[in-house]
Design a protein around this nucleic acid. Structure first.
Lengths: 346, 346
DNA sequence: TTGTACGCGTTATCAA
DNA sequence: TTGATAACGCGTACAA
C-alpha cells in the first residue's frame, strides 16, 4: 500500500472530484481555480501550477451541467443535419466530430428531415440545451431565421452563402462542379446530354442545374427541356427519372445525374433497358461518395471532399467560439474520371 | 392589440420561463410543480390543472442542466456507435433517434471507431454528461465492462448477447442469416462456395462464418479453407479479398460476402477479372443495405431490418428508463433473392 | 397533500 | 491578482 494509495482513499472518498475540492487541495479559492481553467484572468503562476497539479491528482473534469447553469459554456455544439444516416452528409458529420473532439467539444446531432418545421423545432431544442454554437447542414430553413439566430450564438452553415457577424458559411462549388461534369462530356463529343436533377426547390439542385445549363450555352449547345428529368436525390428517384427519359423517346448519348445516388439508380434503369455504360451511354454523377469507386463500372463523378468540408465547418466554429474570424476557404470541386464515361460514338 | 398580446408582453418580460414562474402563476409552490411534472407524488387535481395551464401559457420547458445538477434526469441517452457515417449502423441510429424523439429524449452520439480504448473514452465522456442511459452498437469493448457499467445506468447493447439487471441486448440473427444464404446457394446447386469474411476478431463476423460452416456440414459439404478470404467489412477489403481468391486458382461457382459492402467490392473484382455475375459466379451479401437493390445486378442478400433493430433498442431503453422490463424480441433475418444468384452450371 | 429550505457544481459580481 | 458571495433552475428531505 503506497502513500498515494492512502491519499486517494481519503481524498477521493466522496465520488466525483469538484472544483471546490481542487481549490482546497491547491490551497486557493474556487474562483481562482475557475479562472485558471477558463483563462478568465491572470493568476500567479505558482498557484497556477498548484492548481494544475491538483487537477491532475484528482482527475478533475468540470461538470458541464453546472457550467451551463452558471452561465458558462456547455462545451457542446449543435449540429443540424437532415437525416442522421445520409451517405452524403455522413462524411461531413465525421469531419465535424473529429475536429470538435480535438477541441473537447461535444456534438449534439439533430435531424431536420428536409422539413422546415422540424428543422426549426430541432434548432429550438438545441438552443434549449444551451449549445455554444450551431452548425447547420443545408436544409429548408429561411436564411433570415439563421441570421436572426446568429445574434445569440455563432452559426456555421454549409450549403448556403450567407455571412454575418457570428455567421459563417462554407458553400460547395455546385455551380463549377456541374460545369466540370458537363465540359467533360462535351469534350468527349457528347452533344445530347440528359440531366437528372435533384428537387427543384433544393438549393444544391438548383445550382447544379444552373451550372449544366451555363456550360451548355458557353459551348453553344442548346438546353433541351425534354432531356431534363427531376428526381429526389435518392437511388429510386434516379431510377424512375431515367425510365421517364428512356420512355420519352428522346435521343441522348450521355447523362449527368445531380448526385451519385441518383446516378446509381439511373445506371440500373439503363441496364434494365439494355443499354451498356459506357459503351452505349456515358454517365456522370456528383459527390463522389466512397462507394462510387466500386460501382460497375466505377463512376465518373464530381468529387467534393465532404469530410473536408465538415472539418472546415468545425474549424470555423472553433474560431467563432474563440471570438476569432474564420478564414474563408472555398473547397474546389474536381472531376474524377473513372470508367462510366467514354468518347461519343459518331 | 389583444388581451393575450398584452399578457405575453408583461408576463414573459424576463427571458426563459422557469419552474418558479409556473408555480407563481398557478398559485402553488415550486415543489408542487416539480412533483406534477415528474409524477413524484399525488397532487390535488385542481392544482394539477392549474399548473398544466400555467405550463401551457408560459410554454415552460424544464432546463436539462438544472435538472442534471439537482440530481434529476437529463433526458438524454448516450449512443455509442463506431463511425457516425457507417452505412450499416446509420439506419439503426435513425431508428433510435426516431423513438427517442417521441419520448422527448435526446440522443448523444459518440464514435468508438472500432477501438477499445476510444470506446471506453467515449463512454466515459457520455457518463460525464450524465446521460440517463446508454445504447451501445457493437464494438470491441469487453462484455464485462458493460456489465459493470450497467450497475450505474441502464444499457442496451446491439450485436451481443449479454443480459443482466439493467442490461438488455438485441442481437442480430447472424448465425441463422448466414445459414440462409448458404442454403440458398446450395439449393441452386452450388458446391464450391467461396466466403469473404469480416475481421475474425469481430463478433458479427465470427457468427456469420460459423453459420456458413454449420450449414455446409449439415448439407454434407466440406469447408475448404482455401476458399476463405478475410476482409474488413469495407468495399476495398472485399475487393482485395476477392482478388486473392481469384489468384489462388481455387475453383468456385459462388461467393458469400459477410456484408453487402464487401460484396460490392468483390463484385467489382469479379468484373475486372472478366467474370459475369450471376452467369459465371453467383454472389450473396449480408445486411441488405438500401443500396443493394440498385447494384448491377441487384444483390441477393440477407435482409435484416437495421432500422427496426434501432427502434427496438430505443424502445427497450425507454422501458428500462421506466423501470420496466423490456420484452425480448428476436429480429429474424430473411433472404432476399434478387438477381446476383442463379442455378449453378453443370 | 403541500410548502420551506437547502444543495447540486460552477461562473460572475463585487470588494479588497 | 485574489477571495467571498450570490446566483443559475430544479429536486427533495423535512416539516407542517
Amino acid at each position: 500500500m503506497t502513500d498515494s494509495d492512502t491519499q486517494s482513499h481519503t481524498a477521493t472518498a466522496s465520488r466525483k472530484p469538484t472544483l471546490g475540492m481542487v481549490a482546497t487541495l491547491a490551497g486557493v479559492s474556487p474562483s481562482t481555480v475557475s479562472r485558471i481553467i477558463n483563462g478568465t484572468a491572470k493568476v500567479n503562476s505558482a498557484k497556477m501550477a498548484a492548481v494544475h497539479q491538483a487537477i491532475e491528482q484528482l482527475q478533475f473534469r468540470p461538470d458541464p451541467a453546472a457550467r451551463s447553469l452558471a452561465g458558462g459554456s456547455t462545451m457542446s455544439v449543435g449540429v443540424l443535419t437532415q437525416f442522421i444516416d445520409s451517405p452524403y452528409y455522413g462524411e461531413a458529420l465525421r469531419g465535424i466530430e473529429d475536429i470538435l473532439r480535438e477541441h473537447h467539444y461535444v456534438p449534439l446531432f439533430a435531424s431536420g428531415r428536409w422539413n422546415e418545421v422540424e428543422e426549426a423545432e430541432r434548432l429550438a431544442l438545441l438552443q434549449e440545451r444551451k449549445v455554444d454554437g450551431l452548425i447547420v447542414l443545408s436544409g429548408r430553413l429561411a436564411d433570415q431565421v439563421l441570421m436572426d439566430m446568429s445574434k445569440d450564438l455563432p452559426i456555421v452553415v454549409m450549403g448556403r452563402s450567407i455571412t454575418g457577424h457570428q455567421l459563417f458559411s462554407i458553400d460547395i462549388d455546385n455551380f463549377e462542379g456541374s460545369r466540370l461534369a458537363t465540359r467533360h462530356l462535351i469534350s468527349l463529343g457528347h452533344r445530347n446530354i440528359a440531366y437528372v436533377s435533384g428537387p427543384l426547390d433544393h438549393g444544391d439542385a438548383q445550382r447544379r442545374l444552373e451550372g449544366f445549363k451555363t456550360e451548355l450555352s458557353k459551348r453553344s449547345l442548346v438546353f433541351n427541356p425534354a432531356l431534363l428529368a427531376v428526381g429526389d436525390f435518392q437511388e429510386s428517384g434516379g431510377f424512375k427519372a431515367m425510365n421517364r427519359l428512356l420512355q420519352s423517346g428522346e435521343m441522348f448519348s450521355a447523362v449527368i445525374a445531380a448526385n451519385d445516388q441518383m446516378a446509381y439508380g439511373a445506371r440500373l434503369a439503363l441496364s434494365n433497358a439494355g443499354y451498356r455504360v459506357p459503351e452505349d451511354i456515358s454517365l456522370v454523377g456528383f459527390d463522389d461518395l466512397p462507394h462510387s469507386a466500386f460501382t460497375i463500372p466505377p463512376l465518373t463523378t464530381v468529387h467534393q471532399s465532404v469530410y473536408e468540408i465538415g472539418v472546415l465547418a468545425a474549424k470555423a466554429m472553433i474560431a467563432l467560439l474563440k471570438k476569432e474570424t474564420p478564414t474563408a476557404v472555398t473547397v474546389p470541386a474536381k472531376l474524377v474520371a473513372r470508367e462510366s464515361t467514354r468518347v461519343a460514338r459518331v
